[in-house]
Amino acid sequence: MTSPANAAGAQAGQAYARYPSLVDRTVLITGGATGIGASFVEHFAAQGARVAFFDIDVAAGEALAGQLGDSRHAPRFLACDLTDVDALKKAIADVKRALGPIAVLVNNAANDKRHSIAEVTPEFFDAAIAVNLRHQFFAAQAVAEDMKQHGGGSIINLGSISWLLKTPNMPVYLTSKAAVQGLTHALARDLGPFGIRVNTLLPGWVLTEKQRRLWLDDEGRRALQEGQCLQGELMPEDLARMALFLAADDSRMVTAQDFIVDAGWA
């Protein structure tokens, strides 16, 4: 059965922009098995890229790879705990051997678990930073040499408008997502001389299956209606289409920038 996101990916190949520079380009996506990440995988595969994606959800990852097996290049799923930096580096090395030099990195993986200030322990803080921020740095570090040898590349770090909106009950998550923008600017400066572009993609409230199941209620719907300038639901494919542009040569002189896709909320 085709998932709604997969159907949107197929539609994107017909109704939206095509990027010839992405054909046969090796793209690595973290946290790609579900939600926004799955839409990234589908849209890059529809462009003819060589896609690899990591996730700890083995069942969802294998299912998505199977659904997209008839793409020009069947996406390659690798189970990986991104909080284990050694495992992350090994998985990236495996992708290089299988698909060639990595030209695009989409640092998508995160966990927006709700939490209060009082319940945060040092262990929780470190674990949240590891899943929401630390892996982005080490993934970028691991692909940088490929991109240098390739003559350039694109790194897209996923941030969030949640810290701009001062969303309650997620203090460590907001801290890590604010830091992502600092990481982007630092990497953009240091990697720019090698033609490597680094940008942040900041989603608004993207209504994935998880968000609908856990947190979307009548109060949330009212907040969306009042906060967004554009009415309607923000979907994973809306983020994916911006990521395609930032990965393609069309954005060759765009770096150290923060792109908000939130229907005008922040």
Rank of each mutant, 00 (worst) to 15 (best):
A128F: 05
N132G: 13
A142I: 08
L68A: 03
F53S: 08
V27Y: 00
G69I: 07
A109R: 00
L88A: 09
G31Y: 00
E123M: 04
V23E: 14
N132P: 04
D94E: 15
Y19W: 11
N111R: 15
A65V: 10
V104G: 00
K89E: 14
G35N: 03
Q11T: 11
T121Q: 10
I129R: 04
R25Y: 03
G32P: 02
F54V: 05
I92D: 01
A140L: 06
K113A: 12
F138Q: 08
I102D: 02
Q141S: 13
A49S: 14
D86S: 12
R18N: 12
A74H: 05
A79S: 13
F137C: 08
Q11A: 13
E62C: 04
K90T: 12
A60T: 11
A87I: 02
I36W: 01
T121C: 13
L105M: 13
A46K: 02
G152M: 08
G48N: 06
S116F: 11
I117R: 00
E42W: 02
I102C: 08
A38I: 00
G35A: 09
P101C: 04
A15D: 13
A98V: 06
D86G: 10
R114V: 05
A109Q: 08
F53V: 11
I36K: 06
Q149E: 15
Q149W: 09
I92L: 10
